[in-house]
Amino acid sequence: MHTYAVYVDNKPGVLNRVASLFRRRGFNIESLTVGHTETDGISRMTIVVDTDERGARLVEANLYKLMPVRRVDNITRRPAISRDLAMIKVAAIGDGRTQVMQLADVYRARIVDVSPETLVIEATGTEEKIDSLVEMLRPYKIVEMVRTGRVVMARGSSMTPAKTDRQKRTGALEDAAAGSV
């Protein structure tokens, strides 16, 4: 599994270009989220792809061939904070109701809506944590669920590229001359 933070121009059709690239090259997207960044006009995608090292490099190189792509960070091996958000509607009546509320408590999830037959639980955390909560809730019957997919941010001081900023070619020539290709 490889996780990328991809900074793109916020223009119509960008998502289509990115998705089309994965389809065309035969890479399988595990999850893809997209949203605004703090920089006007730049959106950030978190893309999780099921591929090996070689494939991961091809994904990165191919993403860079799309004009609206400004920067691609493979953050798979970097220390990073990874979160998934889920809203889970569970059938909860009688005893089950209290048990579901207790489970939510254990997972530090919140009950955000209540009806006579159902509860809606909002949970954030790593995908593993959400997976585990979902498994625990399954016996009570999940009637509806939505998850955002993974969003990831590297720890430390990495930043969103500025609007005018694009990563420059790391001169192949200098590399070659230095014998460090």
Partner: peptide, 15 residues
């Protein structure tokens, strides 16, 4: 600048 893409070279020295 959109056209100046990072070129990654890798592996050993060719010469």
């Amino acid at each position: 600048t959109a056209l100046a893409r990072p070129g990654h070279s890798s592996g050993v020295d060719p010469v």
